[in-house]
Write a protein that binds this DNA or RNA. Structure first.
Length: 484
RNA sequence: GCUCCGGUGGUGUAGCCCGGUCAAACAUCCAGGCCUUUCGAGCCUGAGCCCCGGGUUCAAAUCCCGGCCGGAGCACCA
């Protein structure tokens, strides 16, 4: 139950600023990834921010695959499904899914119209050659070709009459525009590599800026929210909008996110490292992909709050995963059942233990549920604790006090004899511990408490160790380390 | 080099558009304490910030100019 105070706090913290020029029910937004790998924590920002606004304004949410580069950033066939999957897992449902690669003829139509309007021309300059023109702000000879000539070259491009790199279609902007990034940019280029979705149906592919400009117009996109890296796109695309007399959507750009723990991990870099065997796959728990986070037990809600808290700031931010973990902990801590996991176990025998006894331990402080553990002579404690507290009077949590050692001396059952806090450690009876392996930055081998095998698929708290998601429970329990 | 965007405690965010109520708020982190049979959770206290320099003004975190620092774009990538 929230108190009024708490609720207010919550709302203040997680509210997005109002969307400019937005009307309830009339907003159309899109999230447009290239499916050259699964969604990452970075992609999640786009999915979430756009998704939240769509929810708030009861708008239409489009998932658009910008998959028009079969060569350099080649789409992965599996990744389309991964996006659909993670999109919904994060809590959003696309009202429409668009595959740019399946709509290429549409782009051709607009390209032709643009040539007819004198807004585009075929350019035979080599890329390095054109760079000189761009840098100096001077036109190349092709810029003045007639509409008829351009049209003819364009048709021949489509027929496959040219080689890759021989000719491109450029948008005629302002060749001396003060920002070199917008000067006569490339709209279409020739690629003969077959596309994973449409094969060799086409050999002329649009560049992102062209495809995106046309799609946003066709879909009546009202608001574009994306990273700052695409800021210049607006400047470039506006030329197309101006030629056609269209109105450009409202744009908002957020700054780059640097996640401390991951550094600069691009999708293509991760791909290479997976191929090199450094990671098990795209859901390797060490990776910042959405599926890896899910596998680890990070909740969608935590990721959502994390990004809502970041907001729409244009400055680039350096954040730590610890912020995400803090959000996640707030969500899972009240639900997670408690168990003992003894990492790097040391076997100890309690001399002169008066009797074996079953002890009741809280399983879930929230529900008051308890679990039962057999307090017996031979128990495991973790190497860490053993080394730090050897010879000390320690409390085996909920069981008894002993002087810690390979051969430990029983002191008493009384809790009061233990100094509260510092020397209470967890333990496991030798007779029914299950082998358990925890996968994280490193691998911990040890024993887990009986009962954990019933928690497959759920996140539990291994007391004094951390939250873990139980993944498998066969001969051995396998858990993924979630966070502290 | 050219262009654009940013710079508020250690980190992140709010405030900036519409100057005063901001000697600056919230979260997290850190330090100490309380509570607790987890080193978890919760509670309390504390430390810590407007990049720099000019200008405008009775008054500047807020407006203007210059500098410095950071980032992004300048691809036949997205």
């Amino acid at each position: 139950m929230y108190t009024g105070e708490e609720r207010k706090k919550e709302e203040r913290e997680h509210r997005l600023p109002p969307l400019p020029k937005a009307e309830i029910g009339k907003v159309v937004m899109r999230f447009a990834p290239n499916p050259n790998g699964p969604p990452t924590l970075g992609s999640a920002r786009g999915i979430i921010i756009n998704g939240e606004y769509c929810k708030e304004y009861k708008g239409k949410y489009i998932l658009r695959f910008d998959d028009t580069d079969p060569k350099t950033k080649r789409p992965m066939p599996e990744a389309y499904g991964w996006y659909l999957e993670d999109f919904e897992w994060l809590g959003y449902k696309p009202d429409e899914v668009i595959y740019a690669s399946k709509r290429i003829p549409l782009y051709y139509e607009y390209a032709k119209k643009l040539i007819e309007l004198g807004g585009a021309y075929a350019c035979f300059c080599k890329k390095e050659e054109f760079k000189k023109f761009r840098d100096s702000g001077t036109p190349c000879v092709h810029r003045n070709s007639s509409v008829e000539d351009n049209l003819e070259v364009w048709e021949k491009m489509l027929e496959g009459a040219y080689d890759e790199g021989e000719v491109v279609l450029r948008i005629k902007t302002d060749i001396s525009h003060k920002d070199p990034a917008v000067r006569d940019w490339v709209a279409f280029r020739i690629i003969y590599t077959p596309h994973p979705l449409v094969g060799d149906a086409y050999c002329v592919y649009p560049m992102l800026d062209f495809e995106s400009a046309i799609e946003d117009y066709l879909c009546k996109t009202t608001h574009i929210l994306r990273g700052k890296d695409l800021r210049d796109s607006e400047l470039r695309q506006r030329y197309i909008y101006d030629y056609f007399g269209w109105e450009y959507p409202v744009t908002i750009h957020w700054g780059r996110v640097n996640v401390l723990e991951f550094g600069k991990l691009s999708t293509s870099l991760i791909k290479r490292e997976i191929e090199a065997g450094k990671y098990e796959g795209w859901d390797d728990p060490r990776l910042p992909t959405v599926r890896a986070l899910r596998r680890r037990g990070i909740t969608a809600e935590a990721i959502r709050r994390f990004y809502l808290a970041l907001g729409l700031s244009e400055s680039e931010v350096n954040v730590s995963m610890r912020s995400l973990y803090a959000e996640n902990r707030k969500i899972i801590d009240p639900q997670a059942n408690r168990y003992f996991f003894v990492a790097d176990p040391v076997e100890i025998e309690i001399e002169n233990l008066p009797e074996e006894r079953e002890v009741l331990i809280p399983k879930n402080p929230n529900t008051g549920e308890k679990r039962v553990l057999l307090g017996e002579k031979v128990v495991y404690v973790s190497r860490d604790d053993f080394e730090k507290l050897n010879g000390d009077n320690v409390r085996l949590k909920d069981f008894c006090n002993v002087i810690l050692g390979k051969r430990a001396k029983f002191v008493s059952y009384e809790l009061l004899e233990a100094k509260k806090g510092r020397n209470i450690i967890h333990w496991l009876p030798k007779s029914f511990s299950k082998k358990c392996k925890v996968l994280g930055d490193r691998i911990w081998e040890g024993y887990a408490e009986r009962g954990v095998e019933k928690e497959v698929g759920r996140v539990v708290q291994f007391e004094r160790f951390g939250f873990c998601k139980i993944e498998k429970a066969n001969d051995e329990i396998v858990a993924i380390y979630t966070h502290e």
